[in-house]
Design a protein around this nucleic acid. Structure first.
Lengths: 356, 356
DNA sequence: CGAGATCGGTAAAACGTTTTACCTCCTCTA
DNA sequence: TAGAGGAGGTAAAACGTTTTACCGATCTCG
């Protein structure tokens, strides 16, 4: 395909009157061997002049390194994961490595082939984003492949190494805040399929118990939202279904005075549901989200939510992965669990309950 | 890094008692030469048994093909581009090629190096998404690299080959609709930096002229929103600035009765601006968006907007690119311009003007 | 029955690096 | 003055494919 104009390391060697080895050493800043200043300069210059461009494949074939790390995301359809990938890009760039994003099909058969063939070969290491319960199986398969990986924003109970927001802390902040302004009847709107959100329910129950508050079963609205963006019900499940679930909560004989949502998408749906029912937020009902996603400040009123420290999460994850790559497989850095501190963003959707 | 357990084509050859060439042919379904059914089966089976996994780099080094196409997006921070990449993924998968997403830094120096070294080598072809005015320079640099590329959702006036919504038609639909329900004073809220939106302004003017309607300068609110997601003002420029610009329109001595927005993000900001000013939408003001992005149905009222046929755009783009790759550089498919039909999504933010 | 096809393969040369194993000076030290 | 050791290299062997160029049978047909 690409024509012959390609200049190789061999051409440089000939032109500069040195061996191929030397050229390779110089271009790779290989410090194991001293090179005379003058030779180095000469080689560098001829490389420049000839417009040399290293052949990525040849290098990778021999060295088993690509300088690329991969981020595998179940989808990019929401507003959270794109934001995360963005931050990962920035972090990777800061460390001089390239980050490429793939969205492998999360389904029975394909996943194995895909992970093995492509990602494991192409990338020096893998970032596994936004883990879905079913992803676990694929991770286990990854064990067979000797590439370092780090789970990011996949929950705190996922197999390490992982980098995640401290979800226990986050839920504590949320509940503390809501209880603090007077709420007692707090409902929860979340999903069962996303591991991280799944875990949050547990933390929520714990926190409520700590305050001696009971959560009627009817206050736990958990939906099996799909992660596969090509699921025919994808959009509905992320919009209509949480909206209806939220409205069901509002219509309860003894409705909650606050709804804590596992993500800002659900919170937004709840907001819309309230608007449609003519329920004033935050006057009659408080709504709180998770993640501080794009839409949280897009509307009026702005969403009170728990911000994920994405920048920090991203740089931690990239650094951890890079360290693992550096050290090779031997060291057991792989038990690392980084839990980063969330931040409460108080905005316009929460207020003391009326009944107070 | 990766240990020795890797089984190569050589092992299969030895085990199956055939030559390396034959194994390669069989595994690649190379039809130039007939292979006996029995040999084929035997080789396939031993490959299976040995757990053979082709070495991507060796293959690419020799064949100059990777089976991967790249999508280059200026960012993934909004809600439109992630949606587009999603559809591209699906389309690529349907054709059996892998799609990887990169977000090259769109800045003076880095872009050249990045595009050349990585993307041009790694990918068989490139999809250039959501073109930004400054991207043009980098595209020109790409000419030096012999890889096929297609611009997607980058505007209709960008250098072909391109696949885009028919923006002229889209604007016609929008204006037809608004004028049709009685609007005369229509303002435009858009950006100057995104090529596609830049073009839409022109179409807007043309359409209005066609109806004999004048657009006062004050009705054209054009903002230099950044495309670089790491721009410190990024979030503000996409939220606060359009909100204020929209409010400025509403505060005009003779305010517009409808605002046509270049994307749904701006429309959302306008909606919020109206809410803050106590202006009822659509009662007192109609707001219309572009693209039918994620947030368009997330809120109440839902956004009336022009939907981009993303699925169609994506599959057209992928097919075009694949054709170009297939044919090699020689053919001049590269003048192709595909303009796909938009669709008007009538929802809740537009109504006849009160003064009617 | 001889000349070409066709069928079913094989050997070996790329592809462009990195890495391993040497090698030759030269200087320093005992 | 022998020997160690460092500085500055080089030659050649990988890495695991794809591709090019052949080759020997077996069939086909005039």
């Amino acid at each position: 395909m690409s024509k012959k104009s390609d200049v190789s390391i061999r051409d440089i060697a000939r032109q500069a009157g040195v061996s191929i080895t030397t050229v390779s050493r110089i271009l790779n800043q290989d410090e194991t061997l001293k090179i005379m200043e003058s030779t180095r300069d000469r080689v560098m210059e001829t490389a420049q002049v000839l417009g040399y461009q290293a052949n990525f494949f040849a290098a990778a074939l021999r060295s088993h390194r690509t300088g690329i790390i991969g981020a595998l995301s179940p989808n990019l359809s929401g507003t959270f994961l794109p934001l995360l990938t963005q931050e990962l890009q920035r972090a990777a760039r800061a460390h001089g490595v390239e980050l490429l994003i793939g969205t492998p099909e999360v389904d029975e058969v394909n996943i194995a082939a895909q992970l093995k063939s492509l990602q494991s070969l192409l990338f020096d290491g893998l970032l596994l984003l936004g883990d879905v319960l079913d992803y676990q199986a694929s991770i286990r398969k990854l064990q067979g492949v000797q590439k370092p990986y780090v789970s990011v924003c996949a929950g705190v109970n996922v197999a390490p190494p992982l980098v995640n927001m401290d979800d226990e802390q986050a839920t504590a902040m949320a509940v503390d805040y809501l209880v603090g302004i007077g709420h007692r009847r707090i409902a929860y709107l979340g999903s069962t399929r996303w591991n991280q959100e799944h875990e949050r329910v547990v933390f929520f129950k714990t926190m409520m118990r700590r305050y001696g508050l009971v959560i009627p079963d009817s206050y736990l609205a958990l939906m099996p939202v799909p992660y596969n963006p090509f699921d025919p019900n994808f959009r509905d499940m992320w919009t209509k279904v949480p909206l209806q679930a939220a409205q069901a909560l509002m219509r309860l004989p003894e409705p909650p005075t606050a709804i804590l949502c596992a993500n800002d998408g659900f919170a937004t749906a709840a907001l819309k549901g309230a608007a449609q029912l003519g329920i004033d937020v935050p006057g009659e009902l408080s709504i709180m989200g998770h993640n501080d996603e794009i839409q949280s400040t897009l509307f009026h009123p702005e969403l009170t939510t728990i911000r994920q420290p994405l920048t920090e999460i991203a740089s931690t994850a990239v650094e951890l992965l890079l360290t693992m790559i550096e050290r090779g497989a031997e060291e057991n850095v792989d038990s690392a669990r980084y839990l980063l501190m969330p931040q409460l963003m108080i905005r316009g959707t929460c207020a003391p309950p009326q009944s107070l």
